[in-house]
């Protein structure tokens, strides 16, 4: 009886902690067969490269600055918090050396952009994922 209670509590806690964090998936167009490494995701989103490894032009899309999925994406793949990202881009913008990826409002907009543009790459909350797009799991 007591054991069961502890088990249930632990299970509940695990579920809650899973829910509190957005789970990020990276998506590209269904016809884009690109395979990406974590470093290439980083280079794409920090404006260092503008091609997929297979030579196709790449256009990364961001979600709004304070969006949870974006913050989680930046933590996981870029290893930077939102202040560091803002400062990184400000340096490039104000020296005329680069501009950050375009921002789309929500997961639906990212999905439809990726659907309609073979060069697009984006990230969304796994809950919004449907089978119209291809997910990329970086090696």
């Amino acid at each position: 009886m007591k054991k069961a209670l502890i088990k249930t509590t632990l299970l509940l806690m695990a579920l809650l902690s899973l829910q509190s964090k957005a789970e990020v998936v990276i998506i590209v167009n269904k016809d884009n067969q690109a395979i990406l490494r974590k470093k290439e995701i980083k280079d794409l989103y920090l404006g260092r490269i503008i091609f997929f490894p297979n030579g196709r032009a790449a256009t990364p899309y961001n979600k709004p600055e304070s969006d949870d999925t974006r913050i989680e994406f930046q933590r996981l793949y870029l290893n930077k918090d939102k202040n560091e990202i803002k400062s990184y881009w400000s340096k490039l913008i104000f020296t005329g050396k680069g501009a950050p990826p375009q921002t789309l409002l929500n997961d639906q907009d990212v999905i439809s952009m990726v659907n309609s543009n073979i060069n697009a790459i984006g990230y969304i909350d796994s809950k919004s994922l449907d089978d119209s797009v291809r997910t990329i799991i970086p090696r």
Binding site: S87, S90, K91, F94, T95, G96
Partner: peptide, 22 residues
């Protein structure tokens, strides 16, 4: 390649010296 009036870049922060935020 850039041509015109350019910012000098003697130091790591000289081309961004006016933008304190960075």
């Amino acid at each position: 390649v850039r041509a015109g009036k350019l910012k000098t870049s003697f130091f790591m922060f000289s081309d961004i010296i006016d933008v304190g935020y960075t």
